[in-house]
Design a protein around this nucleic acid. Sequence first.
DNA 1: GTAATTTTCTGACTCGCGTTTAATATATTT
DNA 2: AAATATATTAAACGCGAGTCAGAAAATTAC
Lengths: 233, 233
Amino acid sequence: MGVQERQQKEKLILEASIRLFIEKGYHATKMEDVAKTSKISKGLTYFYYKNKEDLYMAVTKKAFDELKDVFRDIIKIKGKNGLDMLVELSNNYFKFAKNNRMFYEAILNFMGLVQLYNDEKLKSNIDPLVLASEHFQKLLEVHHDCGKIGTQMVVHGIKDGSIRPELQPEATFYTIWAMLVGYERLLGPVGFEGKDAKINLETWKPSFNRLLQDMLKGTFQAQKVQPVQGSLF
Amino acid sequence: MGVQERQQKEKLILEASIRLFIEKGYHATKMEDVAKTSKISKGLTYFYYKNKEDLYMAVTKKAFDELKDVFRDIIKIKGKNGLDMLVELSNNYFKFAKNNRMFYEAILNFMGLVQLYNDEKLKSNIDPLVLASEHFQKLLEVHHDCGKIGTQMVVHGIKDGSIRPELQPEATFYTIWAMLVGYERLLGPVGFEGKDAKINLETWKPSFNRLLQDMLKGTFQAQKVQPVQGSLF
DNA sequence: GTAATTTTCTGACTCGCGTTTAATATATTT
DNA sequence: AAATATATTAAACGCGAGTCAGAAAATTAC
């Protein structure tokens, strides 16, 4: 069995687990389910993946690769200025999170993992097999790739005049990304703010977009934000 | 045993589990550890809490209450304009996340839970005992409280002229909160961006602060962001 | 072409741990 | 003090992640 065949088998298991994780979630998916769906024995899954978390890391890698595609798809479009690219990225980022919830959850989980990793005291809380896994390092790289692509968009924007020139591109992009991460996370609770709340899913989005763009452009028209029609995304 | 005594016993178990969760993390903490630390039998913990997740929800409630205190401590200070309050909130929010990592992790976990809750298809993935728990509803309320306090800060800022008046206070505050959530989450990976990265923990923070304030004030001085001395927070 | 050796694969087994339960002690009511 | 309700325990259950001894298949050696 060459490298080729081994990778194909790994892919089979990976795809089975992705299907199951999407369907029932990580915890409800049993290793035996994964084995059955992959039409192999339970023991064999442990031949290809160190343990369940290692498998999840492989899923996370797949997830992050797909997210990276979202970034790449936008930067390769010609005839869009930098700011518009970032607005488009913002929309597609939210679409991605909505339509690939399990994947996005995995990405966020990874970010949390890195938090632990950076803290010498908490590093030991991470499954050592995960740390030893090839995926962990790769994931850091893909994350960095996304950062680089996004930063390019800001650079574009500064060059074409759609973004104010005094901004440091990398820090600016990561701040935008931060807004996207946080907005997506807060959507849930905001969806609940009934009664005395003046905000809801329909009204927040346009305000959010305006603030994001104002921050980058720095040219304010003192006009009211107009609510959008229909549902979001 | 009156309500009083029961609550005291619950508190004992809660405090034991908080200590253990901080020390070893949720998964590494066994229900028997909680029982031993509380000096009761394992079975009895299930008399006071429905299951481990229910206990974790109680911990989350405590966590969110503490976060709410961070919000309240700032709004009650006199002689600060709205913008300065929000800058201070931002600093203290990050401090809170750093110094109470387990608590903050619990809060983020809750936000993820609400995401599932809002999705009819994924609602069933949530432990039904958690949904039935008194804590779940209470957590939504505390979240809302935080939103209200933060919104008040924006309202202050608009009144005292430190924040541009055309902004919708609630949407604006939630956007700020989104920035905080996302910044904190991205800190981990950014801490890794070595080699060709021009950003690191020291350089991002001041840029982030500038962008946040620019967004709110809308008065740009076209000056370079100056790096801060020393470590962050 | 077959024996020796390595690699792939299986399914029964172990073991830890969350949760349940039957039995007991303690408190409360009548 | 008997009857009832509440608090508490220890043992047992059940599930599922991970292991392991050995079978099957492929590869190499002669």
